[in-house]
């Protein structure tokens, strides 16, 4: 066990591991690229949907069930399925990652919208604000902390799951995990896993610090 951790340490800090197209630096950049793009697409889909459901109050049933459906859907199965249907491209990976992220974004946006005090909305309407003005100038700013929590959760889950890109022969940090498994090289497998975990935890801590900073004047 001690020998293993010593080798793992050496693998993580070895200069040759970090350089070149198979190097950690490049794999890390790929991993972040997949994760950020997928979260961005998911936000473009999930945010308007959550705002619409929250604003109109219609489709709450959909928002709640979407969350449990998203939790139940096996990501590995989804990736393989889209891969077999669409052939070798990044599409299966993005489909799976977006499908993973959308429910978290929709449900948190919806939760944020329902938490807005109805009296505040009434006051806004009473001042003559139109529906879209209430949505954009009153509800959205008040719901923002919870919306950001949803985005953070989604991004963390996506970063953790982007490992799967390597399963269908693409890059990212999952490369080390799957190559290591194939080559029975435990040090490489562990190295990849540790890197993904560190990236996920670091992003989570950084984003929650940012959240605390942005909303430092709010009490709730």
């Amino acid at each position: 066990m001690y020998e293993l951790f010593k080798n793992l340490g050496a693998w993580l800090v070895g200069g040759e591991q970090w350089a070149g197209p198979d190097g950690i630096a490049h794999r890390l950049a790929e991993h972040l690229q997949y994760s950020l793009l997928a979260t961005l697409i998911a936000t473009a889909i999930g945010l308007p949907l959550g705002l619409l459901i929250g604003h109109t109050g219609k489709g709450a049933f959909l928002a709640i069930n979407l969350a449990s459906f998203g939790r139940a859907l096996p990501t590995v199965g989804l990736v393989v399925l889209v891969f077999l249907a669409g052939g070798l491209s990044m599409l299966p990976v993005y489909v799976a990652l977006v499908a993973l992220a959308v429910p978290a974004i929709v449900t948190n946006t919806y939760a944020g919208m329902t938490a807005v005090d109805p009296d505040v909305k009434d006051a806004a309407r009473g001042q003559g604000m139109r529906g879209h003005q209430v949505l954009l100038q009153v509800e959205l700013p008040l719901a923002l902390p919870l919306i950001m929590t949803g985005l953070r959760l989604a991004l963390i889950q996506v970063v953790a799951t982007a490992t799967i890109a390597a399963y269908v022969s693409f890059g990212g940090l999952g490369r080390y995990v799957f190559d290591g498994l194939a080559q029975r090289d435990l040090v490489q497998v562990l190295g990849g896993a540790v890197l993904v975990a560190v990236v996920a935890v670091a992003l989570d801590l950084a984003l929650s610090a940012l959240q605390r900073f942005l909303f430092r004047h709010r009490t709730a």
Partner: peptide, 18 residues
């Protein structure tokens, strides 16, 4: 428990291999 949750599932399984 929150930090444990951020660790990718595949990583957890792999880290338990030893």
């Amino acid at each position: 428990s929150n930090v444990l949750f951020t660790i990718p599932s595949i990583a957890v399984f792999v880290l338990l291999l030893p």
